[in-house]
Write a protein that binds this DNA or RNA. Structure first.
Length: 218
DNA sequence: TTCCAGTGGT
DNA sequence: ACCACAGGAA
């Protein structure tokens, strides 16, 4: 049985409606390609930094062919994000999209994770945000929220393990029927309320069912 | 100095 | 299960 009941979920979604980062540019373009581009840049990189370059990037590069035809421009525009090797990895992924998927970003997990630079996180993000199908976003943010709510500790090394997925399911329920909104809500809650340090529990819509809120610092 | 919507290699 | 990756902002 999940920790969060229906009332808590509804409260979380209501909080997201009022306080979510709806202005993030990739939230307005929820196509598989737009999400694939955004998530590829977002790994280990702040959302606000990516948001600064994303609009011109997604306007200039509408498909994998655009990227491969203007590699220098892509590198120039994404250089400020760091991890330059990420650009080469992205080029390889674009080639694979053209060769194996008719230039489209696929919608199933097994195809997605064979793409260079795509792991469980980006695969699930494309499925949830790009295809609007049920999938948990399992990253440092959603894990932190679930960990605090349940009181169950989890290490960095375990973030890609089954334990992490079980933690999210235990906290928020089975992923069947899971909406993109809940994933966005969790990411935004983690950003503005359930921060790594000094979380703002008083303003949190989940404080009534959260272990950490009941015993901060534990 | 530390942290940030992770991934690939070992 | 660990570590490098990289630049920018707090």
């Amino acid at each position: 049985m999940a920790i969060l009941g229906k009332p808590e979920k509804e409260r979380l979604l209501a909080w997201y409606q009022d306080n979510g980062r709806h202005e993030l540019p990739w939230r307005k373009l929820q196509t598989p390609w737009a999400i694939f581009v955004a998530e590829s840049l977002l790994r280990r990189t702040k959302a606000s930094t990516v948001a600064g370059i994303y609009p011109s990037l997604i306007d200039e590069f509408r498909c994998p062919e655009d990227v491969l035809g203007k590699k220098n421009l892509w590198q120039q525009k994404t250089n400020a994000l760091g991890i330059a090797s990420r650009a080469n990895q992205f080029f390889s992924a674009c080639e694979q999209l053209i060769q194996q998927h008719q230039g489209e970003v696929p919608g199933n997990y097994n195809d997605l994770i064979t793409l260079p630079g795509v792991g469980h996180y980006i695969a699930n993000a494309v499925i949830s945000f790009g295809y609007h199908r049920p999938a948990y976003i399992i990253d440092t943010n959603t894990i932190r929220v679930a960990s605090r709510v349940t009181g169950e500790q989890i290490t960095q090394a375990e973030h890609r393990s089954k334990k992490a997925k079980r933690l999210l399911e235990h906290c928020f329920g089975d992923q069947d029927g899971l909406s993109p909104h809940l994933n966005f809500a969790l990411l935004d809650l983690a950003f503005s309320i359930c921060k790594p340090s000094k979380p703002d529990c008083n303003a949190c819509p989940l404080s009534n069912c959260c272990q950490y809120s009941a015993a901060p610092g534990s």
